[in-house]
Design a protein around this nucleic acid. Structure first.
Lengths: 195, 195
DNA sequence: ATTGAAAACGGACAGTGTCTCCGGTACGGT
DNA sequence: ACCGTACCGGAGACACTGTCCGTTTTCAAT
């Protein structure tokens, strides 16, 4: 699969457009990681050496750009879920995926917030990513409820929200990921009844 | 105790200053509740009928204003904790306080974020409120660990972060508090081992 | 190779919000 | 009533977002 592509078009993109598109995604990835998902759009355009007009034509909103930036790693997370579905211990598989998902949402400061927002926004460009995470979590949770000892009363939406919440806390604590790793056990123990 | 007061000064505030101070807190309370904790500062000044200069002299940062606004309800939350310390069932007391704390953090959109930030920021004006909540939670948690069946491995910091996280999710879900009430059980079950 | 229409470029700009500076005002002690 | 001082509040510098539109580039047809 070619890397992130704008909505399919019968006519291929013009060469200069394609070049700028790819360049912008690369620069945004860099800047989001450095400064968080609220890095100034103008700075992204500037660093890519294009005008703001060009940036906004390719990505009308910040979320459109963010979606292009995280698409790859969402794919990886989805693949990880499929891999974990073959793990014998269903509870452990769920636990491991929660860790992976939290780590993913920590790619850049502000991502968790955008993902949660997109969950309630039908038209968000991040919606596709959100749905993929949602589905990946749902499959692991369902199996853990049937084969393992995950409590019946929770669903994938709760799972998603809790992961986002933990990632969000981790974003703003000084000790970063360490904080997430203290919180996740509390969460896992709530979801999964002791054996 | 007189309501929220600026840092004690030997000289009492001048009458006009005092009037503006109180007015600003009242207006901010109103606007934060309506529009969230990121309501434009200029709007607050405008609605209070003062210039932005006046607002910023009394409250140099948004957090200083926010701190004055939430001080009272933090006191109430602290009092609630003391009350719950007399409840027979230590686990149930903790659970009830978590609900109260989550509800408190939901006073206005954006408050949870500011509270968590202040937890890692020595100089934040919200720090005092943060510490009070922290301490209230710590006492209830300690008792639930000794007399009830709260797990030993968690501490008040985790408690605080989890409450903030749940409140944060609730802020941005369309179904608001209902969402928090779906999430809290997962959290409680993680903190408190089944009997 | 030339050409011309469509597509893309990118700078200027309007709108919004934050925060500061400073000339003028009004308070309150004497 | 006076005067020094603390306070007031508007003007404006600065930052970011997103749009508009005249200019430039590309590429396919000739």
């Amino acid at each position: 699969m070619t890397p992130a592509t704008p909505a399919d078009q019968r006519r291929p993109m013009r060469a200069d457009a394609r070049r700028n598109y790819d360049l912008l995604v690369a620069v945004a990835t860099e800047l989001f990681r450095e400064q968080g998902a609220d890095a100034p759009m103008d700075d992204i355009a500037k660093r890519a050496g294009v005008g703001p007009g060009t940036l906004y034509r390719h990505f009308p909103h910040r979320d459109a750009l963010l979606a292009a930036v995280v698409a790859d790693s969402i794919d990886a997370l989805y693949a990880r879920a499929e891999e974990l579905l073959t793990e014998e211990d269903a509870d452990e598989a769920l636990r491991l995926w929660l860790v992976a998902a939290t780590r993913h949402a920590g790619i850049c400061r502000g991502l968790a917030a955008s993902l949660v927002s997109s969950m309630y926004d039908e038209g968000s460009p991040l919606r596709a990513s959100c749905d993929r995470m949602h589905e990946a979590g749902a499959r692991l949770l369902r199996r853990a409820q049937q084969e393992g000892s995950a409590r019946e009363e929770f669903d994938a939406a709760v799972l998603f929200e809790l992961v986002a919440a933990v990632a969000w806390v981790a974003e703003r604590s000084t000790d970063g990921l360490a904080s997430a790793e203290r919180l996740l056990p509390a969460l896992s123990k709530g979801l999964i009844a002791g054996r």
